[in-house]
Design a binder for these strands. Structure first.
Lengths: 141, 141
DNA sequence: TAATGATTAGGTAATACCTAACAAAAGGAG
DNA sequence: CTCCTTTTGTTAGGTATTACCTAATCATTA
């Protein structure tokens, strides 16, 4: 098969996906969040419950720097902070519902894309596509 | 078909694509370029030859602001500037080869992805995939 | 001579980092 | 059980970069 032709076809599919992304981003006001902030949010989500020190260590930045981010996240309603009862020095950080929505945009985007796939293809085609997609299994980071 | 299963398979494919992107970005040092700078580059590419005023008007920012960006682009070797011979007030802006490469990253990324598809699939499967991709034709912006 | 294109000078606000210093709490040694 | 050290979080103050701004100026054209 001619690679350039396949590339152009791939771009059609990708364009559909990125449109789905843009739709979702618009709906949840994703624009205000920067790349690095998004990475912090995803880390908090991964930890479920975490602390300032753990986050600062994870990203190799100083605690005051991390604190700045965390304070801003709290003011924006993306995280909750609660004093630990066992160790009163510790403040437990977790995502609010809004923060969780932002941190999991990939879920929303791909769900949206799947809906579009569902609309465009037959059952048989979807099965074909799924089988082909499964051929691209990669290790997680 | 179960949508969640299809979504997980889609993610495998997307992960392959984004890995291809990351490979390319690493190779061409894309990290230093911000989102908005990328948009400016793409605009210069679209115009082929343009001027400061045209760019400032296009993005609705002041000419000094635009100038700042342009000067930085020139210092980074992304654009060339040449005085017009017809109207000596005008400086014509165009992309260098490096700038063009950056502005067209999508090309490099999707080419890379196609190579990975080529490695993973048979001729028959690629034809199938191409036909399915073609079902997602969208209007350009 | 007025208008246009580009540029310089100087300023603001936001982001993303930093070090130094410190209070509160916890933990261990004697 | 008290004293000392460590840990956690926070404040204060600082830097560099990005992305914008207005005002003013210079060269050129109409």
């Amino acid at each position: 098969m001619d690679k350039e032709q396949l590339r152009l076809s791939l771009n059609k599919f990708l364009k559909m996906y990125f449109n789905a992304c843009r739709e979702v981003y618009k709906e949840i006001n994703f624009d205000r969040i920067t790349k690095i902030q998004f990475r912090y949010l995803k880390a908090i989500r991964k930890f479920e419950k975490t602390t300032l020190t753990e986050l600062a260590d994870t990203f190799n930045i100083s605690k005051p720097s991390m604190n700045e981010v965390i304070v801003k996240f709290e003011k924006s309603g993306l995280i909750d902070r609660e004093k630990s009862t066992e160790d009163k020095r510790i403040t437990v950080i977790s995502l609010t519902e809004v923060g969780n929505t932002l941190a999991t945009t990939n879920l929303l985007e791909s769900q949206r894309a799947v809906n579009k796939i569902n609309e465009a293809l037959t059952e048989e085609e979807m099965t074909l596509l799924k089988n082909i997609f499964d051929r691209f299994e990669v290790d997680d980071e």
